[in-house]
Design a protein around this nucleic acid. Sequence first.
DNA 1: AAGACTGACACACGTTATTC
DNA 2: GAATAACGTGTGTCAGTCTT
Length: 258
Amino acid sequence: MVCQTSMEIFRHFSVNPERLQKERRNLLVRIIVPETEEARDKIIKATNSQTPIPKSSLRVTDPIHRQIEDYLKTRDLYYDRRKNYYKNEGKKPKDIISVSFLAQCLMSVLMQRPDSARARPSTLLEDNSAYKKLYHKNNDLVTYYLLAYGGRKAEISLKEKGFSPSLVTNLKFYVVYAVFVLATETLYPTNKKIFDLDIEDLSDDLITQCIELTRGIFDRLGATDKVAKGSEFLEKLKSELEIIIDANSNLEGCHKSG
DNA sequence: AAGACTGACACACGTTATTC
DNA sequence: GAATAACGTGTGTCAGTCTT
């Protein structure tokens, strides 16, 4: 890709200005200034189609991803639609949300598939019906923000608690799922339910509770990669979450009647 | 049953932080 | 300010699982 090449050349001569004198090679560059963002993305898509690129990464030219990027930016999260764009802008890694990470959070919560998010992240995105469900144009952008925010917060929390890198990857999407289940009080959180949430609903306490819950089940099942990729973990987690939800709603019932 | 596909892992490399 | 340590990133291999 030309922008990548030109970027590298610029960096090279920025670091080594003296080499500019000796350099005699030429490079033909065609500069196109698109009128709109849509046109720009079409060009990217067309020029990239010469060399095969996985479908999932080409999807990021869909309008919905630009909308997500624009929205997250207003909340100080940076959606890495164009790889390394925000890194080059000097944004902090913890504020940069990769396309695949958001996708994994989405499938964990909206499709209740943390196992797939952990083990087979791109497979689901290749499937058109799943993709359309996760990135439906009617989904409110707040939903994407809350999922990105909650996902990143869970990830950071796991790291801060000193969990090993592999344990973090094995647990994080289950934690994200659990957090949103308890926050929305349903095993099957929808866009609508998440939309009604607030940042404060995704508290440190809730995340800690979910980390302990998932960790406990994971350990009991053997704490291996296989467990994190399999289906039993999710089943156990769901049934324990259901018990907690019931207990919470009974508690509320008592408060209201009493 | 085979092939596709995944993340973990190890490693090399470059950048940033720390120390003296 | 240089030397060193710590950290982060990219790449390739590998074992294991899921899909067909």
